[in-house]
């Protein structure tokens, strides 16, 4: 960060002499501080999971959901500035709608990632806007099966077997790599996702958090993206608590 304060970091769309776009890098900082979100591509679908730090016990438990649906078959979760995430989802919904009115069919997931990637990139081009302070994780099931992508504030995106963003991403990535992806079933992926969020939370253990999980799977949800049921969530939590406490025992 030696170039901080030399003036090249004060405006979006400006390169520093060594070819960096500082405002985009700073936007990534907002992502890194955000709460952890992950997604797993499984055999016939995608599972999303999110750690929500409880900033006040006056918040209504279970409300304030943050994993959102685009069209019927795509789920989106993000880490970073939450309002920016909602903006991204709104844009995603209009993209999906426009695709439908043109082609009379649901948007393929890769085309969807492409469109949102371009949109994100456009916000690095002008000094009249700021880049998105989020990493967007999107996935869904289309004719070609399940797909999972993650878009960074720069607009670049890749396809993933397992994706993680936010504070606990490093722990999460380590755990995701241990899984047998994408051969895992959707139900197992839900449990693993819960466990990984619990594990990734260990670094900020002093803060309470809520777990949010959604999925889209050909066999389990008929290709529609939706939150898992309350009972299923409780089950996943139990699994995660059990698994993480076992791990603690092993360390001690």
């Amino acid at each position: 960060m030696s170039s901080i304060g030399t003036g090249y970091d004060l405006s979006n769309s400006v390169f520093s002499p060594d070819g960096r776009n500082f405002q985009v890098e700073y936007a990534s900082k907002a992502v890194e501080n955000g709460s952890t979100s992950i997604a797993i591509k499984c055999k016939d679908g995608v599972v999303f999971a999110l750690e929500k730090i409880v900033t006040s016990k006056l918040l209504v438990p279970g409300a304030n959901q943050r994993i959102q649906t685009v069209d019927k078959h795509i789920g989106v979760v993000y880490s970073g500035l939450v309002p920016d995430g909602r903006h991204m989802v709104s844009r995603g919904r209009s993209e999906a709608y426009n695709w439908r009115s043109t082609y009379k069919q649901a948007i393929p997931v890769d085309s969807f990632a492409d469109r949102l990637g371009s949109y994100t990139q456009a916000y690095t081009l002008y000094n009249s806007v700021r880049p998105f302070g989020i990493a967007t994780i999107l996935g869904g099931v289309d004719e070609d099966g399940p797909h999972l992508f993650m878009i960074e504030p720069s607009g670049s995106f890749w396809g993933y077997h397992g994706a993680a963003a936010g504070k606990g991403r490093q722990t999460a990535k380590n755990e995701l790599e241990k899984l047998d992806l994408p051969n895992i079933s959707a139900r197992d992926a839900v449990n693993e996702a819960a466990r990984i969020i619990y594990l990734a939370h260990e670094d900020t253990k002093d803060k309470e958090f809520e777990l949010e999980i959604s999925w889209v799977s050909a066999s389990e949800t008929g290709g529609k993206h939706q939150h898992i049921s309350a009972e299923h969530l409780a089950e996943a939590k139990k699994f995660a608590e059990q698994a993480t406490s076992d791990e603690d025992d092993m360390e001690e």
Binding site: M1, L10, N12, Y26, A27, K29, R130, G133
Partner: peptide, 20 residues
């Protein structure tokens, strides 16, 4: 001069990713 210069508008992130 080197007062916080990341707080003049809402389209500039601070180096830590904040929007002053």
């Amino acid at each position: 001069m080197f007062r916080n210069s990341y707080d003049n508008d809402s389209v500039t992130y601070s180096p830590t990713g904040r929007l002053f």
